[in-house]
């Protein structure tokens, strides 16, 4: 089966960092309507297997294209850039300082007077930073994959803090 077509092609979208979310949702629904294993519950074994593979791929593509960081990584991977592992650090002193400051800030908020509101605000802040980096990525990925890779690493850092803050909110509950 030719499952090698890229996710953009699968969903009928142009290869680009900025995507039309409505188009993505629409394509997602029509592809699942057609390929989901529920449509093949009594079909021949081969059809069931193909449908499982296809529906899995559609779900995975939907997840990757919807997520700002995964989408960026995917674009670079399509270009053949090796992104290494998630934890790779960035050698950028200014960013290093910023990281330390943000970590301290998160800790202060967590032990502050109103952790619920503070953490909520922190989460929003991180989402905004990820968006900003995303805009930058969208400008640079076709020009310089090295710079684009650094941008992804920044996004991943903000995302880790985002997740930590969310876990802290969960613990408040």
């Amino acid at each position: 089966m030719n499952l090698t077509t890229n996710y953009f092609e699968l969903f009928g979208l142009p290869v680009s960092y900025s995507i039309d979310r409505r188009q993505l949702s629409q394509s997602y629904r029509s592809l699942q309507q057609q390929f989901h294993p529920d449509r093949f519950a009594t079909a021949a074994e081969q059809e069931r297997r193909i449908s499982l593979q296809m529906a899995s791929r559609v779900n995975e593509g939907n997840r990757v294209l919807r997520d700002p960081i995964e989408r960026a990584r995917y674009l670079l991977e399509m270009e053949g850039v090796d992104l290494g592992t998630d934890g790779e650090t960035l050698r950028d002193n200014q960013f290093l300082l910023e990281q330390i400051e943000l970590r301290e800030q998160l800790e202060e908020v967590q032990h502050g007077a109103d952790p619920g509101a503070g953490l909520g605000h922190f989460v929003e802040q991180m989402e905004q930073r990820i968006r900003q980096q995303g805009e930058q990525f969208s400008q640079q990925w076709q020009e310089s994959s090295a710079e684009a890779k650094k941008t992804i690493q920044r996004m991943q850092f903000f995302n880790r803090l985002h997740r930590q803050a969310e876990t802290m909110i969960d613990d408040l509950i």
Partner: peptide, 8 residues
């Protein structure tokens, strides 16, 4: 809905 079982 069918993948292989299609009729016109």
């Amino acid at each position: 809905m069918a993948l292989l079982q299609i009729s016109e």
